[in-house]
Structures are given as C-alpha cells and as structure tokens.
C-alpha cells in the first residue's frame, strides 16, 4: 500500500512512520529548518519548519506524515511567519555576518535569505555573551548560538560524550560546556567529534582557518539553500 501526502499541491509518497520533513527531504523538496538534521532525533525547537495542515501550523520535523494529508509550505503567509521567527533568532543573539567566518555557508543566514529576510525587524537585545577560545582546535562564539541543540544531540547520541548542555531558562537559556571549569578546552571535546561538524551557524568554528573560500564561491553564494541543501548534505560535510 502506498501512502501519499500533498505538499503545496505535489503528491509526495512516504513510508508510514516518517514525518512531513522526512517525506519532503526524501522527495527533494525543501522545507526550511534549523534544529533538524536527519541524523538525530527530531527536536522541534526552532519552529522554522512550520507548515500548514488543516488550517493550523505544525512543525514539519515532528509531525507524522499521514496518508491523504494536505500540507502547505511555500505560501506568503507561512513564509512571513517563518521570517518573524528567523528575525527573532537574529535579534536574540549578536549576528555580525560581515565579521563571521561562517558567513556565506551559514545555514541560519541561508534560511534567512530563503524566507526573504532583509532586516531583523525587531529591536536587538544585544546580549552579553562570551567567546570560548580555550580549545586548541575549535572555538565557540556564543553570540551566534541559536540553541538548536544539534551539538548537544551529536555529542550525546553520536560521540557519547555529553560535552554540551543547555542551561538557564527563557531568554537567559544558554549553551554550556560540561567541564569542571565550564570551558571547552577542559572538556572531552575533540576536533574529530561529530559535534564539531553539526552547528548550523558560526557558533562552533575550527581554529587556524580563516575565510578560506573566497566570496562568490561559498556554499550559499550562488544558489539558495532550497537548491544547495544543508551543510551536512555537502560531500565531506565541513
């Protein structure tokens, strides 16, 4: 028995148990997402993947696909809602793209382009957040963390290390490192960890490398993320 849903009018086959996001990814249709990465359990926290089902918005990454389901994704109303959410992510941190090594291949930035964000719209919170450069190979700039918890999941579920966790609550929620000093350099983190590769933003960056790819040749310089796909979809990842 084949099961199919309709995504913006296109029939998409799926296997029972898949989410709307799984089905769309498998069919090569892009639904914007930040906290989702098919290698890890769905999380549902960024809310960028909202799609319309039965007159309500649901997160595609956590909602089971159902036979005969009608899903709306690429409508102006939904894009505008997603844009507001992405704008919220921009104003809650400090994103100075011109000064960020990840710019041009940053998933957050690429999603922002995809949803048509020209400005962050809301007032900036300008939070005071640290940069942790204690590790010999990697640095963390917490100004750019969007709390997607992909590093948390990768470290816990793949690296079996629990290097990262989220602490605090509300707008004061923040990523923390599991080490006695709270510094990355004192943790079990290693450059070969999967957690080093999963960050969709410029928060976790390798050291000793700077702006290697010239402007114009970076991942998202020439074509949108809906065409190029995620960082992880690239050969060899980062």
């Amino acid at each position: 028995m084949s099961t199919t849903l309709s995504l913006d009018g296109r029939p998409i086959p799926f296997t029972p148990g898949q989410t709307i996001m799984d089905a769309a990814l498998a069919a090569g249709i892009y639904i914007p997402h930040l906290c989702h990465n098919p290698d890890y359990a769905p999380h549902g926290s960024c809310r960028v993947c909202m799609v319309g089902v039965g007159g309500r918005l649901v997160s595609a990454c956590t909602t089971a696909a159902l036979d005969g389901m009608t899903v709306e994704s690429n409508t102006e109303t939904i894009q505008s809602t997603r844009r507001s959410i992405v704008q919220m992510l921009f104003v809650e941190g400090n994103h100075v793209c011109p000064a960020c090594e990840r710019s041009g291949s940053c998933q957050l930035q690429a999603v922002a382009y995809y949803v048509g964000m020209l400005s962050p719209h809301f007032p900036q919170f300008f939070p005071q957040r640290p940069v942790d450069a204690s590790h010999p190979d990697f640095m963390i700039d917490f100004n750019r963390c969007i709390l997607c918890e992909l590093c948390v999941r990768a470290s816990r579920d793949h690296d079996h290390k629990r290097v990262f966790a989220v602490s605090g609550r509300g707008l004061a929620s923040h990523l923390v490192i599991d080490s006695p000093s709270g510094l990355l350099g004192d943790s079990h983190f290693a450059a070969s960890d999967r957690a080093a590769q999963v960050c969709p933003t410029g928060a976790i960056l390798p050291k000793h490398r700077g702006y290697e790819q010239p402007i114009g040749q970076r991942l998202y310089d020439q074509a949108p993320i809906s065409v190029v796909g995620d960082l992880r979809a690239q050969p060899g990842g980062e």
């Binding site: 960024c46 809310r47 959410i85």
Partner: peptide, 21 residues
Amino acid sequence: FAHESCGFCTPCRVGTALLRN
C-alpha cells in the same frame, strides 16, 4: 510569561521578552 518561558522554542523564548518590552 517572560520569566516563566522555558526557553526551548524560539517564538516563546524571544516573543515573551519582546512582548514584555
């Protein structure tokens, strides 16, 4: 609500603070 949002998801974490301000 800004004080009590658990902070997990973007619209509530940031939205409650925006509304309060």
